[in-house]
Computed example of a mutant assay.
Amino acid sequence: MLIRDATPADAAAIAAIYNDAVAHTTAVWNDTPVDADDRRAWMQARMAQGYPVLVAEAGGQVLGYASFGDWRAFAGYRHTVEHSVYVHPGARGQGVGRALLLALIARARAAGKHVMVAAVEAGNTPSIALHESLGFVRTGLMPQVGAKFGRWLDLAFLQLRLDDRAAP
């Protein structure tokens, strides 16, 4: 498996993975599928801000993708990023998410970020376990802040301190 920077040619595969999450999971709290043009625009916006979009690839197939961006849009939060990782349904449980998240953590450290935040649907125990196995700690729970598939969803927050700086 190769972890690499995404290119515009990956947009259709990224859209397909995202759309599967929209249709079948609570990993993304959106009900609207996207197309390749939407994902190309999203990738361009992320990259224009200096943030990575990574893909995991094997045998010419995109198995998953990941990115991070601003956690909040205020200057005081500039040292903190929030990430997302999505894996093709046929590749889940095979280490793709772990490899992508490890690569994102390395990129965030290289960019001088201090904290990486994960916002995970509280019932997504595999994602929470993955994050905790990489050193993320649970920092909060927001009950019933989302809705999908006719039910309320709780949002769990986890964070990873990326460095030991005493001050920014």
Rank of each mutant, 00 (worst) to 15 (best):
W29K: 00
M47N: 02
V120P: 08
A118F: 14
L101R: 03
W29M: 12
Q61T: 09
Y65N: 04
A110G: 12
L101T: 03
I17W: 02
V87F: 04
R151T: 00
L160C: 08
A6P: 07
G76S: 10
P8K: 01
A106F: 11
V53Q: 02
P8M: 09
I3C: 09
Q61D: 14
Y86S: 09
K148H: 01
Q159N: 12
R109W: 07
A21K: 02
G93R: 01
D154S: 15
A41S: 08
G123A: 15
A91M: 05
T7S: 12
M43N: 01
A58Y: 00
A41W: 00
A129Q: 13
M1P: 01
M1R: 05
V120Y: 09
S127H: 04
N30A: 14
G76E: 03
R78K: 13
L102Q: 15
D154R: 07
A111S: 13
A106H: 05
S84K: 10
R165T: 04
Y65P: 05
G112D: 12
A167Y: 08
M47G: 00
A108V: 05
L134C: 13
R138L: 07
T139E: 06
G135K: 05
R4G: 10
D31M: 04
G140I: 00
K148E: 01
A73K: 13
Q94K: 13
H114V: 05
A147R: 14
A13C: 10
D10G: 09
V81Q: 02
I17D: 08
L100G: 03
P143T: 00
A147F: 08
P168S: 07
Y65G: 04
L160P: 06
A9P: 00
F157K: 03
H114G: 05
G95A: 11
G90W: 03
L153W: 10
V145W: 15
V96Y: 03
S133L: 09
I17C: 11
G76V: 09
E121I: 11
L63H: 02
A45P: 06
Q44G: 11
R39M: 15
H79F: 11
A99E: 04
A36Y: 01
I128L: 15
A118W: 13
V22W: 09
L54W: 05
H79D: 09
R39H: 00
R72Y: 02
L160R: 06
K148S: 10
L162E: 06
A16P: 05
Y51A: 04
A12V: 05
V96L: 10
V85Y: 07
H114M: 01
P8G: 05
A45K: 14
F74I: 09
H88G: 06
S84T: 15
R107I: 02
R151Q: 11
A36N: 02
A6W: 12
Q94Y: 02
A111T: 01
A156R: 11
T7M: 10
